[in-house]
Design a protein around this nucleic acid. Structure first.
Length: 139
DNA sequence: AGCCTGACTTTGT
DNA sequence: GACAAAGCCAGGC
């Protein structure tokens, strides 16, 4: 039971990038999908690339999510990439931020405690785009 | 046009 | 429990 995208909330399609043709020649922008989901992440909550990837269509493409985030810096509206961490709750992408501390700083501002580059209580703060109500992990 | 890398994840040994 | 390999898609060279 993981075939349908299950978009409980029919959110408007992202305006996507204008000045650039943003990848994907297939019609559906993987990036756009990722941005859409990433923007849905509630404040003070975090999610994993795999969760986004799964909601995007395939969790196998978790890497692409990270790649998309890389482009997210130029995406509008800005994507809260700081709320996206790896499955370990580790801020793997912090090095890609303008500053190596920007990510954890942002998380702390939202009430997320970060210890040793990893989210404290990640399991509790984890927000699954497919199960926003329960907020629990599928696993 | 082809090869390599990349902010991940899962499974197997 | 740790290490290695495979799979996904896209971008850069």
């Amino acid at each position: 039971m993981k075939k349908s995208k299950t978009n409980p909330t029919d959110l408007p399609v992202a305006p996507l990038v204008t000045h650039k043709k943003v990848a994907t020649a297939k019609g559906v922008n993987f990036f756009d999908t990722v941005y859409k989901i990433a923007r849905k992440i509630p404040k003070g909550r975090v999610t994993s690339y795999g969760a986004i990837a799964e909601s995007s269509g395939s969790r196998l493409s978790a890497r692409m999510v990270g790649w998309a985030m890389n482009a997210a810096g130029s995406a509008k509206p800005p994507v809260p990439a700081h709320r996206v961490v790896n499955r370990n709750g580790l801020l793997t992408g912090k090095h890609h931020f303008p500053t190596p501390t920007a990510m954890e700083e942002l998380l702390r501002q939202e009430g997320v405690e970060v210890k040793d580059d990893k989210v404290v209580g990640f399991r509790e703060l984890f927000w699954d785009p497919s199960y926003p109500g329960t907020g629990s992990r599928k696993k």
